[in-house]
Structure formats: C-alpha cells, structure tokens
C-alpha cells in the first residue's frame, strides 16, 4: 500500500500542521497535540474535551468548534492520547463552568482519561466523564472490554456540544450526553482491512470475495467472516442487528458512516438500502447523515448508527454547528 506520507513517525504531527494551516479558527498546538477552538475558554459555558487515537478523522479534531467540541487530543495512530494532553486541553478550555470528557470505550482511552480527570481535578477543574459504547457487535460484555465507542460518538459530541453552547450546567450536559449514548447503537462491516503507517501492510488478510461483519474502527477483525454480500444484504444484516438491541419507539437519527475507503457513491447507495430496511421495520427516521465521519484509516466498509431521539435531542441536533467536519445552521 502506498501512502501519502513522509515517514510513519511524523504522520500525526504533519497532519496537525496541515490542519492548522487549513483552519485558522482553531488553535492547533502541534508539539503538545491539542486542538482547541480559538475563542476558548467561552465565559460561563461548559467545555467539551474528547480525544482518541488518530486515524479516525474527522473525529475528533475535525469536530472542534462552536456547537460541538471545545478541544480534542489526538493520539498516535489508533493509540489513546496521554493524560498530559487531556489536562492541557481541559486547562485551555475551562471557563470555570467545568469540563466534560467524552471517552470512547477502549481500555487505553478509559485509563488515560481517568488519570487525566484526577490530575485536572487536582488543578481545580471540575470534570465529568461520559463513556460512549454503542457498538453492538461486541455481544459478550462480561468477557470482553465491553462495547466499543464508534459512530454514536458523533451524536454525543454534537448534542452535548449544542447543550453546552446554550449555557446548560455541567450535570445537564453530562446527562444529555449519557442519554444520547444510551439511545444509540451501531454495527459496522469491513470490505477490506486498513493499513497503519507503522506496519505498512494490512492489519488482517481479507481474501477477495469475503467481508468481515461486526468490525470496530481500529482495523481489528470483526465478529465473523462471510462470503461477500450485496449492499442490500449488508443493510438488512446491519439494521436488523442494531434493531435486535434497540427497539425505538421514537424517531431516530441515522448515521451511515464510511470507514475511509468506500466512496460516497457506494455510501449513498447503501443508505438507500438502509432507509428501505428501516421503513420495512417500521422505524421512523428524523434525520440522516451520510459520509466519512468516524473512519478507520483506509478501511473499506461502513457502519450504521441509530440514535433514538425526543424533541429536545432533535432540537439540539439541529442547532448550529461550525467545525471542519460538521457544519450547518451557520
């Protein structure tokens, strides 16, 4: 696999320098690896900090800006950032109203954010945490590290960001974020593995004519491997898998998310099948988002996330947002 890089060691720093050049509305600290909205700290408002391994762009740095995250901490590729980054980010964005850490449920992210929360509290910053764990492909939570955080992260960051922008206090922003997560489920498939810069070859072998069902977003193999399926069959499988775990009574937000190497042409075609299946299953749809938002480097494939909403969550979802990766209403 040929990559548009210099050397693997500088991939993250190079991307941050490029991001800084493209987005003057963000403060990008390349050395310390923190991306902060330029107007932070915003007086009287709760700040949102997230972070995780790099390779999932636009998540998380691309979601920094008014109406979404206050700061993001990018780690090495597929590696959680370190507590120092999170504490630095929290200190940069805290207005005194407190900071919410949005953490995807992976062992590394959880451990580092836990350590960071303690250190930030030592510095007098009020910190709350919300864990995103929407991936239903992980069925056996008792004997695993638990459900992974995937596509729902976008909905949590968007809706909690809107609540913070409205000036809601930390407890409310936290409980809204938790509500979004509790009402979200995702399922992903891979049509090809991804290639990390450090390794330079695919993370797993997927023979031609096969696909992986139930993959995460780190190039790890999925729950099972099957003979290649059509877009229609994958949509049926994914939607049905999600609906096994979430029986929405209210309308849902739908994210049809590309893993990085699947063209939008295919994603829109896949979305048509997802919408057909949702209609067949009697699930009312409030909003649909299609695109590459929570990616896995150059993995081919897609995930489906459903988030059951009520009027308040929908209003917050529709609220204006201005970030490199998500932008509407402004």
């Amino acid at each position: 696999m040929r990559m548009l890089i210099n050397v693997p060691e500088t991939v993250v720093a190079d991307a941050l320098r490029g991001m800084a050049a493209a987005h003057p509305e963000l403060t990008v600290d390349v050395e310390n690896r923190v991306v902060v909205r330029r107007d932070a700290p915003v007086a009287g408002k709760v700040a949102l900090v997230s972070g995780g391994g790099s390779g999932h762009e636009p998540l998380h740095g691309g979601f920094v800006g008014p109406g979404m995250l206050s700061a993001a901490c990018p780690g090495e590729v597929f590696t959680s950032p370190v507590p120092d980054q999170m504490v630095r980010a929290a200190a940069a964005v805290d207005s005194g109203a407190g900071v919410l850490f949005i953490v995807k449920n992976y062992t590394g992210d959880v451990l580092n954010f836990d350590m960071a929360a303690e250190l930030a509290e030592d510095e007098g910053i009020q910190v709350a945490k919300v864990l995103v764990n929407d991936d239903i492909a992980v069925t056996d939570s008792l004997y695993t590290a638990g459900r992974r955080g995937t596509g729902a992260t976008l909905f949590v960051e968007k809706i909690a960001g809107a609540a913070a922008e409205e000036g809601r206090p930390l407890e409310q922003v936290e409980s809204l974020a938790r509500k979004v997560n509790d009402n979200s489920r995702s399922f992903g498939v891979a049509l090809g593995a991804c290639t990390t810069p450090a390794k330079g070859s695919p993370t797993f072998d997927l023979p031609a004519g096969e696909l992986e069902l139930g993959v995460g977003i780190h190039g790890e193999p999925g729950r099972e491997r099957r003979a290649m399926m059509t877009s229609r069959e994958i949509a049926d499988f994914s939607v049905d898998a999600v609906l096994e775990d979430l029986e929405p009574r209210n309308p849902v937000l739908v994210l049809v998310n590309g893993m990085g190497a699947t063209p939008l042409l295919e994603l829109y075609g896949f979305n048509a099948e997802v919408q057909r299946r949702l209609a067949e299953r009697g699930v009312p749809v409030a909003r649909v988002l299609v695109g590459n938002y929570v990616t896995s480097l150059d993995m081919a494939g897609a995930s489906v996330t459903l988030c059951q909403i009520d009027e308040e969550l929908l209003r917050l979802y529709d609220a204006p947002v201005r970030t490199p990766g998500l932008r509407w209403g402004v």
């Binding site: 391994g53 780690g75 959680s80 370190v82 120092d84 992976y106 062992t107 590394g108 451990l111 580092n112």
Partner: peptide, 12 residues
C-alpha cells in the same frame, strides 16, 4: 511512560 506511550500499555 504514562506521559509518552498512550494506549492501554502507557498507563499499565
């Protein structure tokens, strides 16, 4: 190690 490694292995 905690400050430089990240992931799970850094804290552990």
């Amino acid at each position: 190690l905690i400050s430089t490694v990240g992931g799970a292995s850094g804290p552990l």
